[in-house]
């Protein structure tokens, strides 16, 4: 295990950024977000970013290809996948787990090469939590916020940053940094995690029962009735991966891009003859069935949620996966 003085954290960032692009969680226009580090940019004091770390692997908007159309002919020039290595510092354990969930979708055959390239170029440096928010429930999904994983795990204690490489990529990053000293981190106090109000959520029930029982639960009607049908929960969610592919006519060609989409939107499944999820109830059910039942069914029981608590904080009407999971298990809303 290596150490670095927290008082000179800026110098550590400068050393990393001297070799490759570095992203850290910082306040930009008052909002904590993963931002490209430049001299003077300080880490946010917020526990986590408002938007999740998925932005760096699956950006909200991304060009896929450009087309030229002339008369009856069409030509394609594909966009280039990212080829520059980068480091993302300060990822919390929940967001780090979300990469596994995104991987299981995007890296499944046939792999998404844009996503894959970013994953291969990235070195993920995680940061252990010591002061969780009340909305945190990663522990009930089997995540240890004090052992966050990634290529390098970091802990902050007193005036020291402790770094532990977990992978070859992590070793290489640490080896490239000057003045790292050896040290052992002190045992962290984990008592606050025992006080978390949502720590005892149990998601195991969802893989134990038939899909149709959950689907036909009477609670959906009531749970979805106040849903506004906005996309806040899906866009701040670190595991939501649905996207749309759209064309933009620039006037001198056509740009095909993909952008985040939300299953909460009325046009998500709209076809020429109509939609198969006509009301908010079906759309709402799709989102939570996907997280709690469909995704685990298709990916070895892996729940599509990491307990980051963003949807608890951001939903305009305070409806969220915790309320849904509890209501489903109780069978009443």
């Amino acid at each position: 295990m290596k150490t670095w003085k927290l008082s000179t954290l800026d110098a550590l960032f400068a050393a990393i950024a001297g070799k490759q692009t570095l992203y850290i969680p910082a306040d930009v226009a008052g909002q904590p977000v993963f931002a490209r580090w430049e001299p003077g940019l300080a880490m946010t004091r917020a526990l986590n970013t408002g938007r999740s770390a998925k932005d760096l692997f699956f950006p909200q908007v991304e060009d896929l290809a450009r087309f030229r159309v002339a008369g009856k002919t069409v030509s394609v020039s594909p966009a280039q996948a990212l080829q520059e290595p980068f480091v993302i510092f300060g990822v919390r354990a929940c967001d780090c787990r979300s990469f596994d969930i995104l991987d299981s979708v995007f890296l499944a055959e046939p792999a998404d090469t844009f996503y894959q390239a970013r994953r291969e170029q990235a070195t993920v440096v995680t940061l252990a939590c010591s002061q969780p928010e009340e909305t945190c429930f990663c522990t009930s999904l089997g995540i240890d916020p004090q052992a966050p994983g990634g290529d390098v795990s970091c802990w902050m204690a007193e005036d020291t940053l402790y770094l532990q490489a977990n992978t070859e990529k992590g070793e290489a990053l640490l080896a490239s940094l000057p003045r790292l000293e050896d040290g052992e981190k002190p045992d962290a106090d984990s008592s606050v995690f025992d006080k978390l109000p949502l720590k005892d959520l149990d998601f195991s029930a969802f893989s134990g029962k038939a899909l149709m029982d959950w689907f036909n639960s009477p609670v959906w009607e009531r749970l979805s009735q106040s849903c506004l049908g906005c996309g806040s929960c899906t866009f701040v969610c670190p595991t939501c991966q649905c996207y749309d592919v759209r064309d933009f006519d620039t006037g001198h060609g056509v740009q095909r891009y993909r952008c985040w989409d939300s299953c909460m939107y009325s046009d998500f499944t709209m076809m020429a003859h109509g939609t198969n999820r006509p009301t908010q109830k079906e759309r709402f059910r799709q989102r939570f069935m996907h997280k709690l039942v469909y995704h685990p069914n298709n990916h070895g029981g892996q729940i599509g949620c990491v307990g980051c608590g963003r949807c608890l904080q951001k939903c305009p009407i305070s409806m969220n996966i915790v309320k849904v999971a509890n209501a489903l298990k109780e069978g009443k809303a």
Binding site: V105, F106, A108, P110, D112, L211, M212, F215, Q241, C242, Y243, D244, V245, R258, D261, C263, F268, T269, M270, M271, T275, N276, Q286, M289, H290, V293, Y294, H295, N297, N298
Partner: peptide, 18 residues
């Protein structure tokens, strides 16, 4: 046939259940 964008099982909209 349902609405599709990717046809690769990633864009997330053409599912019937799982």
């Amino acid at each position: 046939e349902l609405k599709m964008k990717c046809a690769l099982g990633k864009c997330g909209r053409c599912n019937i259940g799982d």
